[in-house]
Design a protein around this nucleic acid. Structure first.
Length: 193
DNA sequence: TTATGGATCTTCT
DNA sequence: GAAGATCCATAAA
């Protein structure tokens, strides 16, 4: 994928965006430190047809960003201690997003190790809350446009064709559990399980 | 105003 | 494999 193709990828349906994001690079720049990783695992969430999505039902203060423009960053706080990060998909007002579940660390690895208090590369970003801690993602990223923001952005890196992409049911949800909306790079050691 | 439970991670057994 | 940590948006009252 070329750099300018991200914008057109975001016009695709949520599940196609999810697949297309595998192999892209997620980058943050915080306090002068750049950290980035290749996206190797994601999940799709689609408000109106998906009981597991935060946007299911109606627009509220918490999920408001999910109804914004595609490419926006939706960060939420969970279990009293963790942040998770999404990129908004579908046209404005839809309430859909793709959750970043795991990265393969690429740059700023020392910084990630410091933030995580760990050195083992496979444990740095192998879960949605772990990658947020490693890349210092929190509420300050909420609502950033990931196609133009300095703080948090996405760019093409590697392309995977369908034969390298696995799918499964989503993890950690109590509703709509039958949907196979989780996608990951097959055989990559940095996925969450 | 209060009660409830969640798109998780770590540590312990 | 199970439990504890610990905040906050939402729904119920």
């Amino acid at each position: 994928m070329k750099k300018n193709q991200l914008k057109s990828l975001l016009r695709e349906s949520t599940l196609d965006v999810a697949r297309g994001l595998l192999g892209c690079r997620l980058i943050t720049r915080v306090h002068g430190a750049e950290t980035s990783g290749m996206i190797v695992e994601v999940e799709g969430y689609h408000g109106t047809l998906d009981e597991a999505a935060h946007s299911f039902g109606r627009r509220t203060r918490r999920n408001d960003i999910m109804f914004g423009r595609p490419g926006f960053c939706y960060v939420y706080f969970i279990y009293g201690m963790h942040y998770c990060a999404n990129i908004v998909t579908e046209e404005e007002g839809t309430g859909a997003a793709v959750l970043f579940r795991a990265l393969e660390p690429l740059t700023g690895i020392e910084e990630m190790q410091k933030r995580r208090g760990l050195t083992e590369p496979k444990k740095l970003c192998s879960g949605p809350a772990k990658l947020c801690e490693a890349l210092a993602i929190d509420r300050q990223m909420l609502g950033e446009d990931m196609l133009s923001s300095q703080l948090i952005s996405i760019e093409p890196y590697t392309d995977f064709d369908d034969s390298h992409i696995g799918k499964s049911k989503r993890i950690g949800i109590s509703k709509a559990q039958h949907l196979e909306w989780r996608f990951f790079v097959r055989g990559n050691g940095f996925v969450s399980r």
